[in-house]
Write a protein that binds this DNA or RNA. Structure first.
Lengths: 205, 205
DNA sequence: GATCAGTCGTTCGGGCCCGAACGACTGTGT
DNA sequence: ACACAGTCGTTCGGGCCCGAACGACTGATC
């Protein structure tokens, strides 16, 4: 079972322990799937190439679709990185969770929408949505009312307070979206969106 | 405040309620951020164009970077779609969560790794990791031991049972990774990975 | 040797997350 | 009228998720 060994980097941050930390350049990060924790202080990185080398070594003998693996990995990694970035820079100051934001967004755009549709749009289960809407309702950002024609259903809409919050928050959010894609050219962004849509459609039938 | 109205589609699945569901083609899905719930039965879809039209209408007067917004949205949407797909097809049959899988993967590849590094690699907080490792340890898939040179630290490694599971599971997982990127050409996959890496690096400094 | 600042993993409370089970309700068919 | 199959949102238990606070431990400095 091959395993990488390493010694601490020249800067000697003292975070990697020689002989034990499985890094090769005093920089610990597998880069698999995702990595965006606010706690890694000295911030270590394996390059993707290093990771792939370690993986290839581990997986020698198995037939592996490295290309697809790398693509999927980076989707998840980028998504988490972006999410955590937006959470901490835009949402946290207003004490909003990511899911709370998404729900507010959906209700803002479509207004007076049934909860089951909100759940579908937000990509969460209806059971989860009940709790999230409860939280947001408690804070006076949206309100529930029974569907006039079908007592089983519940319609959701923003309150004035909720609308005011969105008008303040959305520009900040969009500004951060611009920032995180700042290193991409305009056609790159378009291609990225188009390619990812193909992936999503492959999965959502 | 403009809002789309619609009537049920010709197939009349009876899921969208006329006059109330904010769809235009009897197909409800905002496509914002993500949408992959196993509960939406009749499976409704707004095209991205429709969504963008509704958003644009809602946001008229504000200056919005639509291109970046679409890129970020699709990253998150694809990530969730892929995650839920892999969870249900590969992980759920073995009663594994996504996070549990990622942790097992990290430990499998790097072996005998300190918990703080596992947390960084997996992209979760150390507090969360304590619980996840507890779960996996209880199931006999990995084991903890105190670092020989530093009693504060804890080393994690797979058990024989854990290794055996990975050898069974990884090929299935990789096969699904191939499937979800099936509609992409080889250079498209490479470009996708490279582009997403740029986004991730923009955020993780 | 005795601080002491810093790092380790753990614990805790509150929120999200899911699937299964539930009561309320609807529309259909009898 | 009246069952009844199906859908609605809610509740529940178990797991993940975070940040803050904590005790254990280390290494450097006195």
């Amino acid at each position: 079972m091959a395993r990488a060994e390493h010694r601490s980097g020249p800067d000697g941050e003292g975070i990697c322990v020689p002989d034990d930390c499985p890094c090769e350049i005093g920089a610990c990060t597998l880069s698999k799937y995702v990595r965006t924790t606010n706690e890694s202080r000295g911030d270590h990185h394996h390059t993707l190439a290093e990771t792939e080398t370690a993986v290839a070594e581990m997986l020698s003998g198995m037939s592996v679709d490295m290309e697809s693996m790398a693509a999927v990995q980076n989707i998840y990694r980028a998504a988490n990185a972006v999410r955590k970035r937006l959470e901490s820079s835009v949402l946290a100051p207003h004490d909003l969770t990511w899911t709370g934001w998404v729900v507010l967004w959906v209700v803002w755009i479509w207004g007076d929408i049934e909860t089951r549709h909100v759940a579908a749009e937000a990509g969460i289960s209806k059971g989860t949505l009940t709790g999230v809407i409860g939280t947001l309702e408690k804070r006076g950002l949206l309100k529930r009312r029974t569907h006039p024609d079908d007592a089983r259903r519940v319609l959701v809409s923003l309150t004035a307070k909720g609308r005011k919050l969105m008008i303040v928050l959305f520009p900040k959010f969009n500004e951060e979206e611009s920032y995180v894609t700042h290193s991409l050219s305009s056609p790159e962004k378009a291609t990225l969106a188009r390619t990812l849509r193909k992936v999503a459609l492959q999965v959502e039938p």
